[in-house]
């Protein structure tokens, strides 16, 4: 187990390096630069700016400089937001994204697992069809359609909830974005749970448990749920990635100042350091999450051996 963990950890380092190198090159290959604007800069002013951000150096030297700073935890200054460093911006934006994404994930798991279990027990009944029908719709309707619809209904017409922004940081502002972000995940989790629950319910050990006269509740909670959740657990890794990419869109629509919004604005502004910072940060996050899920899997399923 420990050997496996170390192996996986060492394997993550080259993955991360390749990610950094690719992002570094791609953002620079994109036409247009951070200093292009409708009103062009005078050449001497642009040269001065390029020198100040070391953009006049050879690419390899720039990359070396970036890596060296990165090892020390320094993402560099933002090209666009000149009063802030990228580290500060990430530290500002990440808690917001984490709250949004974490709540969405929690909601997706709780609601998804409950609905999936319910559907599994009522297999091939109207309840099952309704739950799965709604889940299918949830998967099919992209969040950039769902979100504006929800704003229109709940904020503009009914005026129950704010249309956007974070307000004073209250929960009211988070309700709509969290639900919009969680909906497709709820649907996935519900389908996954249903499928694996049905399979588990048909297996021998459950039949044995029922035959021994255990109450249904005990059978589900103590015996069926844990094995049925395995596929859901392994889905947490990809779900994290999906919620992160989903939040890029959701944060933009709701005007939530999270990392996703920085990423979009950073890319449009050719804010090299900001885009790099978010990519590296999320890269580390997703790699660690997949790593944790793998370890968790071994703990949950005694059959998995490393």
């Amino acid at each position: 187990m420990i050997r496996y963990a170390i192996q996986r950890f060492l394997g993550a380092i080259p993955t991360l390096l390749i990610l950094i190198a690719l992002a570094f090159i791609m953002i620079r290959v994109a036409p247009g630069g951070p200093f292009d604007a409708e009103k062009q800069l005078l050449p001497e002013i642009e040269a001065n700016l390029r020198a100040a951000y070391h953009l006049d150096e050879p690419l390899v030297q720039q990359f070396g400089r970036y890596l060296y700073a990165l090892i020390q935890g320094d993402f560099g200054p933002s090209f666009q937001y000149r009063d802030h460093t990228v580290t500060e911006l990430i530290m500002d934006g990440f808690p917001v994204s984490l709250r949004l994404g974490g709540l969405a994930m929690l909601l997706a798991l709780i609601v998804g697992v409950s609905l999936g279990t319910l559907a599994a027990f009522r297999q091939n009944t109207p309840t099952d069809y309704t739950v799965m029908g709604v889940a299918m719709t949830g998967i099919s309707i992209p969040n950039f359609v769902m979100a504006p619809l929800m704003i229109l209904l709940f904020a503009v017409y009914l005026k129950w909830l704010p249309a956007g922004g974070l307000g004073d940081g209250g929960i009211a502002n988070l309700v709509l974005p969290v639900i919009a972000l969680a909906l497709p995940q709820i649907a996935y989790v519900a389908r996954l749970t249903r499928g694996s629950m049905i399979e588990v319910l048909r297996s021998n050990f459950i039949r044995t448990a029922s035959a021994q006269g255990l109450p249904m509740r005990t059978v589900i909670v103590q015996h069926a749920l844990k094995p049925a959740l395995l596929p859901v657990i392994s889905y947490i890794g990809p779900a994290t990635a999906a919620i992160i990419t989903g939040s890029v869109v959701i944060e933009q629509i709701f005007g939530v100042p999270g990392l996703g919004r920085y990423f979009v604005q950073g890319a449009l502004n050719r804010d090299y350091t900001l885009v790099m910072g978010v990519v590296v940060f999320y890269g580390v996050l997703i790699i660690s999450f997949n790593f944790l899920v793998d370890l968790l899997y071994g703990w949950l399923d005694p059959r998995v051996k490393y």
Partner: peptide, 18 residues
């Protein structure tokens, strides 16, 4: 001063009295 690039989003927030 709210940072809202998306004009449709801005209009919605205006209509929601924000």
């Amino acid at each position: 001063y709210y940072a809202i690039e998306n004009q449709d989003a801005e209009l919605k927030r205006y209509r929601a009295d924000e």
